[in-house]
Simulated scan of single mutants.
Amino acid sequence: MKQIKLSLLGLVFLSSCSLSGDKSRQLKTSVNPLVGTWQLVAGIQITGDDTVMIDYTKGQEMIKMYNDTHFAFLRHDLSQGKDSTAIFVSGGGRYEVKKDKYFEHLNYCNYREWEGQKFELAFTISGDTLTTNSIEKIDAIDLNQINIEKLVRLQ
């Protein structure tokens, strides 16, 4: 009988500890389709009449991460900086989604001329593939190009 009373007391205690009534402690789940980590696999850069196709899986890799309010990207060569392909690029900042577009506010970048820029990107998601299309225009470095990127969601 004592064991039954203790069990009932334990159940009452556990049910009072439930998170269901405490909204501030519940985990939020995002409805933003960009949230997660994506690997850049291919890109096209169009500057004037020149079109360059880039395979980001050969000798380098890049990931882009999104949470509900911020993004970050990291790109590096796979030779650990020991040959002519050495590269490291990183950046990030706030972003906002509006329907099929999102706006990046690049607050941090190892290429400092890019900092403070705002970019508008049209995007589509099909299965685990994210495709973005943007115009990158920075007068200070005479940059004006279309940038199309294909990324796949990492698990």
Rank of each mutant, 00 (worst) to 15 (best):
Q45Y: 07
L8V: 05
G93E: 07
L34S: 09
V89Y: 10
D128K: 10
C109D: 14
D139C: 11
L151N: 09
G93S: 07
L27V: 15
L154H: 10
G21I: 08
G59H: 02
Y102I: 03
L6Q: 12
G93V: 03
F71R: 02
M1K: 06
K58E: 14
Q117S: 07
G59P: 05
L6C: 01
Q26H: 14
S20Q: 08
I125T: 06
Q60E: 12
S24M: 11
Q26A: 15
V41Y: 11
I87L: 15
K101F: 15
M1W: 05
D68F: 13
G81F: 14
S134C: 06
V97Q: 09
G92N: 07
Y102A: 03
M62D: 02
E120Q: 00
D83T: 07
K2N: 11
Q60A: 07
D50R: 04
E120G: 00
K101T: 12
G116E: 06
T37F: 06
K101C: 13
E96V: 04
V52M: 05
D77C: 05
L9D: 04
D142F: 12
V97N: 04
R112G: 03
A140M: 10
L143P: 04
V89G: 04
D83P: 05
S126K: 07
L106S: 05
I87S: 13
T47D: 12
D83R: 06
Q45K: 06
G21V: 08
C17R: 11
S20I: 05
D100S: 11
R153H: 15
F88W: 05
K5F: 00
K64P: 00
I146V: 02
L106P: 02
E104T: 00
E96P: 01
G116L: 00
F13W: 07
E113C: 02
S24F: 13
D50K: 07
R94W: 12
Y95D: 01
I46K: 01
Q145C: 04
L143G: 06
D83H: 08
N67R: 06
C17I: 08
Q39S: 09
L130V: 09
F119Q: 03
Q145Y: 08
G43M: 03
A140V: 02
K118N: 10
V12I: 09
L19H: 15
G93I: 04
Y56W: 09
S18F: 02
W38A: 03
M62H: 07
S84F: 10
G43L: 06
S84P: 08
Q60P: 02
A122Q: 05
V152Q: 15
K28C: 06
E104L: 10
A140T: 14
G127A: 04
E115L: 03
L19D: 11
K5P: 00
N144L: 14
I63Q: 03
E120W: 06
S90Y: 13
A122N: 00
K98C: 14
I146C: 00
S90D: 10
M1Y: 04
L151C: 11
W38M: 02
A122V: 10
